[in-house]
């Protein structure tokens, strides 16, 4: 895959210098806006995943690229923390975290898909979701070597299922790719990156930010817990909506798999993963909540944007 389209002055300068064969330079610009900052950050993170055909692999660790990444990450993390209000969870921890997630109230894209969305809206949603679902569970995999024994084993128990239990045919990202192909959409990674709104870039960048910093390992696991704990019931609604619109069985099967898988994963993420982490490192509980909030809040922002756009259309 090639670098995405620039969305402002900074991303244009970054992508130009990444593509060139000369020294990386000219990255001291301020981003034009959120789109500009987040497409730049997304592309720099992507260098750590699959990379780009038009960028030399050496540039993953180029100091100038890392300097810019760190500057944009600091701004992004400060913004995420400013949106969050620190909360003390009820005891015991697992019930407290489940209750915190359940009490968060936000707009539901899945309810819209279940009852009202038309085919075009659903295809647009699938294109947007493809940016994450085609590398589903990859960002939290960065957290594995940063964990103590009990949460490390617990996270791998969950990840083993996400990655198909050793069977590539059951790997969740692959199931989504099959669903995209059957729906007549492109299944190559980030084929639709130029079409996604900034909220999707923020969702993806938050997971990479949490995954790539050992300091933020608890936020990474808190994000996972909130993601899994808000997946089973919405996945059922998504599957029903896709069936109502007669989308292919492969795409429906992806969501049906998540009804059952995430009913397990939410228990693991909250109890055996986050629970074991805060038992081993109690001071990390605030960052678990911060990560959970960030997941819920960024999903709300994306849902609100799409519902507003679809109502206005």
């Amino acid at each position: 895959m090639l670098l995405p389209k620039a969305r402002g002055e900074l991303s244009e300068a970054l992508f130009d210098t990444l593509r060139s064969e000369s020294e990386v330079e000219g990255l001291d610009l301020r981003p034009t806006d959120g789109d500009d900052a987040h497409i730049a950050l997304w592309a720099m993170y992507e260098l750590h995943y699959a990379g780009f055909e038009d960028v030399d692999d050496e540039r993953e660790w180029n100091p100038e690229v890392l300097r810019l990444r760190r500057r944009l990450e600091r701004d992004f993390e400060a913004e995420l923390r400013a949106r969050h209000t620190a909360t003390t969870l009820d005891e015991p921890f697992a019930e407290g975290l489940f209750a915190y997630i359940a009490h968060h109230d936000g707009p539901s894209l899945a309810a819209h898909v279940q009852r009202k969305a038309d085919r075009e809206q659903v295809l647009e949603l699938l294109r947007h979701r493809s940016i994450y679902h085609l590398k589903e569970s990859d960002p939290v995999a960065w957290s594995v070597p940063r964990l103590p024994t009990a949460p490390k084993a617990a996270l791998m128990e969950l990840q083993y299922d996400e990655f198909g239990g050793g069977d590539p045919n059951r790997l969740h990202a692959h199931l989504f790719a099959l669903g995209l192909e059957a729906s007549g959409l492109r299944a190559d990674p980030f084929a639709y990156i130029d079409d996604v709104p900034v909220e999707i870039l923020e969702l993806n960048n938050a997971m990479s930010l949490f995954g790539l910093h050992r300091r933020l390992r608890a936020a990474s696991l808190g994000h996972l817990a909130a993601f899994e704990a808000t997946s089973s019931l919405p996945s059922r609604r998504m599957a029903q909506g896709l069936a109502r619109l007669e989308l292919p069985q492969e795409m429906i099967a992806y969501y049906e798999e998540h009804v059952e898988a995430d009913a397990v994963h939410e228990q693991l993420a909250v109890r055996t993963i986050c629970g074991a982490l805060v038992a081993a490192e109690p001071h990390l509980v605030d960052d678990v909540v911060f990560g959970a909030f960030t997941c819920l809040d960024l999903e709300d922002r994306y849902a609100q944007r799409m519902l507003d756009e679809w109502v206005a259309a």
Partner: peptide, 8 residues
């Protein structure tokens, strides 16, 4: 199997 319905 559980499908998360207990939560509602």
């Amino acid at each position: 199997w559980c499908d998360g319905t207990h939560k509602v």
